Simulated assay, not measured.
Amino acid sequence: MPAKNPEAPEALEFLATRLSQPAKMFTAPVPSHEELAAILQIALRVPDHGKLEPWRLIVLEKPDFIRLADLAEARAKELGADAEKTEKARGQFDRGLMAVAVISSPKISDKIPQAEQVLSAGALCMNLVTVATAAGWGANWLSGWPSHDAVFRARAFGCSAEESVAGIVHIATPARAFTDRPRPDPARVVQWGLGG
Results as ranks from 00 to 15, higher is better:
Leu79Met: 13
Glu7Asn: 14
Glu73Val: 15
Gly96Lys: 01
Gly122Ile: 04
Ala175His: 12
Ala115Lys: 12
Cys159Met: 02
Gly50Ala: 09
Asp185Ala: 12
Asp185Leu: 12
Lys24Trp: 14
Ile168Val: 14
Glu10Asn: 10
Asp110Lys: 14
Leu142Glu: 15
Ser164Asp: 06
Val30Thr: 15
Ala166Gln: 04
Ala177Tyr: 10
Pro186His: 06
Glu53Gln: 14
Leu60Tyr: 00
Phe93Ile: 04
Ser32Phe: 05
Met25His: 14
Ala172Asn: 03
Lys4His: 14
Arg90Gln: 10
Ala89Leu: 09
Ala175Phe: 10
Ala177Arg: 14
Gly196Ile: 08
Glu13Gly: 02
Gly96Thr: 05
Glu35Ile: 01
Ala134Gly: 08
Ser147Gly: 15
Gly138His: 01
Gly196Pro: 10
Ser20Phe: 03
Ala123Gly: 10
Asp180Trp: 08
Asn140Asp: 15
Arg90Ala: 11
Lys4Ile: 15
Gly144Gln: 06
Lys111Leu: 10
Ile112Asn: 01
Ser32His: 04
Gly195Ile: 03
Ala123Tyr: 03
Arg155Pro: 07
Lys111Phe: 01
Pro186Val: 10
Arg56Cys: 02
Glu162Asp: 14
Val100Phe: 08
Ser160Glu: 13
Trp192Glu: 12
Ala37Val: 02
Pro113Ala: 06
Leu119Asp: 02
Ile103Lys: 05
Gly122Arg: 08
Pro9Phe: 05
Ala74Asn: 11
Ala8Gly: 09
Val102Thr: 10
Gly158Cys: 09
Leu71Glu: 09
Gly158Leu: 10
Ala121Leu: 07
Ala115Leu: 09
Trp137Phe: 12
Ala101Asp: 05
Leu57Tyr: 05
Ala81His: 12
Arg95Phe: 07
Leu97Asp: 03
Asp149Gln: 12
Asp185Phe: 09
Leu97Arg: 06
Phe14Ile: 05
Gly158Ile: 08
Val151Met: 11
Pro63Gly: 07
Ala172Lys: 00
Ser143Trp: 12
Met126Thr: 12
Phe26Met: 11
Ala139Cys: 11
Arg181Gln: 11
Ala121Val: 06
